[in-house]
Structure formats: structure tokens, C-alpha cells
Design a protein around this nucleic acid. Structure first.
Lengths: 163, 163
DNA sequence: TTGCTAAGTCTGTCAACTAGACCTAGGGTG
DNA sequence: CACCCTAGGTCTAGTTGACAGACTTAGCAA
């Protein structure tokens, strides 16, 4: 059997791993999900994610430190000043990850009633989808049509023993 | 400030949450990353993910139980029969999630040298991208152009107190 | 002065992760 | 035969992290 080429390369500095270091836990995903739903306040986040307050606090701080969220102040009439959390551009750019999870969950893990939330194009109201395409304009239906190749950051492994 | 409509609805049975219940941890993502790279064997997975053997064992079993991987046997000449793990269709359909993470990581978390792996369309060799589109054919550039609306599974919350 | 609320922090318990040693089955070697 | 080698695990002990629930804080209102 032919071995995949990646086995000859280092794994260090993988971009997926770097991304997972920022959002690689359930809590962060739930927080981001709510942020994309427009939820901004601590208490609302807590009710909707079901996370313990401390975990939520940690996640919000971590996501803010990483620049995915930005802490802002708001004040309702007759209330003191409070904080809310808003997505930054960096955070918003994670949207495709959430959409991909939503689509997969809808296909394989949904309840009988269908999804709780659907996504519409704000301009035209049509449903939003993720599409895998190539820059030559072809649509890809499956991971099988994709070939991983070494990128510019690929480093040959110091081979210890036979590969 | 207007409150987001989701606050009036239940959070139960969210499809994102259901998806996260299957793959919502770092280990599972790393295993899937390697599976998409073509890695199939326990030892190779262990070296490349850096996961402790026990965690890897747990994740492989969990992903197999969930039907994302399938355990198969292989035998090299002069070797005893061993096991390998291959992606099922259900597992392969998670590919967009990994691609989304890869793209985000490439933009915001990559090292100076660029990505380790690039994705090519197997047929034409052009680089593969994930695109957010609507079914009317528009391309969306940002999460801001997306409007979440209640889906068929949305359930109004039993309101306790003012919303 | 007391109470209310949002947004936290503190504490104790329990589950999960981690490192590292150990085990096992089949084949090769002396 | 007796022994070693390897892939693919399991076992154990120690540490970290998640969780539930109580407590704290700041500002406004009665």
C-alpha cells in the first residue's frame, strides 16, 4: 500500500492546529454560535449556551484576548453601564466554520424537526450555502475530489527509521 | 437596543451543538485532519497528531462508533494482520469544516512560511476554496450579509420573566 | 437603608487529559 | 525452541479542566 506523502513531513505549525488552539473547544464554538445569532450579553450567552458562568467568563476573555470578540459598553435607560461582546472581523471570518458545522449537523445529527436556525442572504432572502469550489470554477461534491499537496510551509521530517 | 430574536426561542436540539457532540474536541479534529491527509494507521496518527495513545484510542473508537471512520484490516507481506481507519461518507462530509478552519488559520494564525498543506482540485489542479453563496447565485463576502431566521425546528421559549 | 440585577468570582467535587510504563499477538531470527 | 521486534493497544498515577452552586460587586430604585 502506498503511504501518504504527509508522513514524510513535519506536523509543526499546522494552520488547522493553530486555528484549533484559538477555538478548539466546545465552549468557544457555542459562544461564537450565539455571537453570530446576535447575542451579546453575558447573561443571555449563559442561558443559551448552558455553560457554567466561570467557563463562559474564561471563554469570553480568551476570545477577546485573541481578538475574535471586542468588549464594549452599553447602557439602558435607568440602568448602570454594562458590558457586551461583539464580533470583530477576525471573529466574523470564522463564520464558514460554523456554517459547515451547521450543514453537517443538519444532515447527520438533526432532530426530526429540522434546524432551529436557517441562514438567509440578507439582500435577497435566499438560503445560504457553503460550496467547495476550485479557482478554475468547478464545483466539488466530495472530499474525494480534493488532493492535498505540500504547501510552502511544508518541512521534510528528519527521518528516523524507515518511512 | 433591539434584542436578537433567538432570545425568544429554545436552544435545545441545535444542530451545531449536535455536530459538536460528535467532533467538538481538539483530538477529533486532529484525527480527522490526518484522515483527510490519507493517514490511516494508529502509529502514524499518533506521531502526527501528538495525542497520547489513550486519547487517540478513545477518539478513534468514538469516531468509529459514530460512523465517521470505519475500521478495516490490512496486511503487509511478511507482517501480521493489522487495523487501519478509513473515512466513511459521513466522515468525508465533514471536510468543509476542516477546510474552513484551514482557511481561517491560514489567514490569522499561520506561521511566516505559509500553510503546510494546500488543496488542489484532483481533476484540474486548481486550488480549492470554500465559498459562501446563496441559492440565488450571489457570492457572500462576510457574515454580515447573512440573516439568521427561525427554522422549522425552532421552538418558542416558555418565557420566564421579561424578554 | 435595603433590595434588585447583571456580571462576574470563589470553592469543592468530579471527570478528562497527560505521561509513561506495561501488555499482546504474530512474525522473524539465532 | 527461545528470544526479540513491532503495531496497536491497555493500565496507573498525577495534573488539569469542567461543573454546580454559593458568594461578591457596582450602580440604580424604592
Amino acid at each position: 500500500m502506498e503511504r501518504p506523502w504527509v508522513l514524510g513531513y513535519e506536523t509543526r505549525n499546522c494552520t488547522i492546529e493553530a486555528a484549533l488552539a484559538v477555538v478548539g473547544d466546545r465552549g468557544s464554538f457555542l459562544v461564537l454560535r450565539e455571537a453570530f445569532n446576535g447575542v451579546r450579553r453575558f447573561g443571555d450567552m449563559q442561558r443559551r449556551t448552558g455553560l457554567p458562568r466561570q467557563i463562559l467568563s474564561n471563554r469570553l476573555r480568551a476570545l477577546t484576548d485573541q481578538g475574535l470578540l471586542r468588549k464594549a459598553s452599553y447602557q439602558e435607560p435607568g440602568q448602570r453601564q454594562r458590558s457586551e461582546y461583539r464580533l470583530t472581523r477576525k471573529g466574523m471570518d470564522l463564520f464558514p466554520v460554523l456554517v459547515a458545522l451547521l450543514e453537517w449537523g443538519g444532515r447527520y445529527a438533526a432532530g426530526p424537526d429540522g434546524p432551529l436556525v436557517e441562514l438567509q442572504h440578507a439582500d435577497c432572502g435566499a438560503p445560504v450555502r457553503l460550496a467547495l469550489t476550485c479557482s478554475a470554477g468547478h464545483m466539488l461534491d466530495s472530499a474525494r475530489e480534493v488532493q492535498p499537496v505540500p504547501g510552502p510551509g511544508a518541512v521534510l521530517a528528519a527521518r528516523s527509521g524507515p518511512i
